[in-house]
Design a binder for these strands. Structure first.
Lengths: 341, 341
DNA sequence: AAAAATCTGATTTACGTACATCAAAAATGG
DNA sequence: CCATTTTTGATGTACGTAAATCAGATTTTT
């Protein structure tokens, strides 16, 4: 049987009330007594029974998810996963609320974060927009003792406790190697379709992609980045245009969202030429395109895993427990035709 | 606030004791009364507070992991992950015990399973060996009401509740496509190194591999499978031999363990020729080989995830709860140089 | 040395469920 | 209709922790 508070009390020669004061850092315990209790805790290897503690506290963890109101498949998927978590929340003693804010609007995001300083939830998860005011707002929350994790998009330099998302530089590098290898030794141009270079994820993916391309595939040259603003129609137009103008294009890397337009453009133009295409995010559209050969590989981050991981980490932080790092590492999924889920 | 047993009692117009009898399927409740209570439960949407229930029961889940005593990196890793879970077990109210049995010995495995029918643990996880007697022993456990999950290697046709492992046919197919694409349109021979064709995983990987090769890469022909018995020295010898004899080999697929020998053979022979190599299982050896270019891609199953998933599923089954399917799907990791963890 | 302030102990209630006991009520048999 | 059996209610204890109260013991201040 694992030791309980009673055992600590007996071992330390103090009363239960004192043990409780030490455990829950309540005032009214002399320094020497406190140390005596802490030693006892260490010696008998006591670990608080979190389930019983939460039961006694009648605690429900109240978490807030801040997500951008973006209209693309990935964000819809993310939202769906948060909703699924909300549906499960009573069972897990959590009370999850989502806050939608305009996409790519650092001011709104910072304002939303500052609002939470008053509400004081048990934890905050946010899809970060990379800007100084957001960083500062996050740091303020952390200073207030509120656990904060970033999801999908990180906020380096901030004091957020955790990032539940993929390494986007590694993703870009992986895309480059796949594309390079798939193209064999062929020489030619590679088109890159991004959402916006203002988004950190996209910048990082491009950075990784360009690095490996330069290092390892000198025969391939990257054309100026096409910014499709994650919009299907815009992507369609721009990609069609590029494919018409440059007939040296033999590969395409789509590192953002809005792949529907890309796929349409590819289908129109690729009747007469073979293109190797790597895209991000598995959606109904990209899945179909992968199966029919329009896309050759899809890099993906599992939104469900990210949401669940964020919740687990927030819970652990709220309880002052440690997390299993390997479990919380969000992996980059690589999908070919054959290993689709 | 979520409803409690008291709320059920009030809603159904019965006493707490009766609710308890219904909830824990104790005798002494008239059919009509039972239905009344069950309706109330459904209507107010009651879900048992598992934490409180386990606290009251003083319950600790006792799980048994049956693992083969194989001497290769993967099984060592799996064992390490089980041990890590054991270390965490007191905190999670679980009591995990491992049983080692000789590898590839169906009789021993079946005997071990039958022993557990007497012990009656709260759940059993096993690395299955594909044989009728094992299937029968598993079915007997399931019939006894004990949750059973297979890990790493499945037991199709049995009544096990869950399989925590990858789809090996998909793995083989993925390997074939990667190899085929990496080789561009080149024509030549492909060597396949397996542990043993008696192991179901290996058979399935080969099946998937051969299928895609035949369908999509007619220029590549698969040589007779080399069975290295997952033994480094044996693999080294056999692969060296094959590479010397057949100079048409341009690709290698290693679908089993014992990659150390393969890597040594490749390093010796590949000074004068370029080979594209796909291997399974990320270990220190394969990682190094991937980084130095000896191996081109590694397919991996994360033993840690498999173990944790198995435990989560066993727990859920023991509590009669449902699992989040997407969370428990073990994905096939594809590692290139750039996305190593 | 007395008064005040600070610390500690003892005890109780609560969280939501499980489980046991005993009494009371209702249904069933003859 | 009585005796028996079955069903139901009322009540209490337990699990491990949190949190509160109040009394008693120390220490510190005056």
């Amino acid at each position: 049987m694992r030791p309980t508070v009673h055992d600590i009390a007996a071992a330390a020669g103090v009363s239960l009330a004192t043990v409780d004061r030490v455990l829950n850092q309540r005032p009214g315990v002399r320094h020497v007594t406190r140390e005596k209790v802490e030693t006892a805790i260490r010696e008998i290897g006591y670990v608080r029974d979190v389930a019983a503690a939460n039961l006694a506290k009648g605690r429900t963890y109240s978490f807030v998810f801040i997500v951008p109101a973006s209209d693309n498949s990935f964000m819809h998927g993310l939202n769906a996963e948060v909703m699924a978590a909300v549906a499960r929340s009573p069972v897990e003693r959590t009370d999850i609320r989502t806050v939608e804010i305009p996409a790519f609007d650092p001011t709104a995001l910072a304002a939303a974060l500052d609002t939470l300083r008053i509400e004081r939830p048990a934890g905050v998860a946010l899809v970060a927009t990379d800007a100084p005011e957001v960083r500062d707002a996050v740091d303020r929350l952390v200073q207030d003792g509120i656990p904060v994790v970033t999801v999908v998009s990180d906020l380096t330099g901030s004091q957020r406790h955790h990032y539940a998302g993929v390494d986007n530089i590694a993703a870009g590098r992986t895309a480059a190697r796949l594309l390079g290898r798939f193209l064999g030794g062929a020489k030619g141009d590679v088109a890159v379709l991004a959402g916006s270079m203002l988004v950190r994820d996209h910048r990082e993916r491009l950075e990784g992609f360009a690095a490996v391309m330069a290092e390892e595939f000198p025969g391939l040259s990257i054309l100026p980045v096409i910014e499709g603003r994650d919009d299907p129609d815009m992507a369609h137009m721009l990609v069609s245009d590029a494919l018409s103008k440059r007939d040296g294009i033999i590969g395409v890397y789509s590192l953002g969202a809005g792949n529907r337009g890309l796929i349409r453009a590819l289908k129109e133009k690729s009747v007469d030429r073979a293109l190797t295409v790597i895209a991000h995010e598995l959606t109904d559209h990209t899945r179909t395109a992968l199966l029919d050969g329009t896309i050759d590989a899809i890099l993906n981050q599992d939104a469900g895993h990210e949401v669940r991981s964020a919740i687990r980490v927030l819970k652990a932080k709220a309880d002052g427990l440690s997390v299993i790092d390997a479990q919380e590492r969000i992996r980059l999924d690589i999908f070919l035709k054959d290993n689709l889920p």
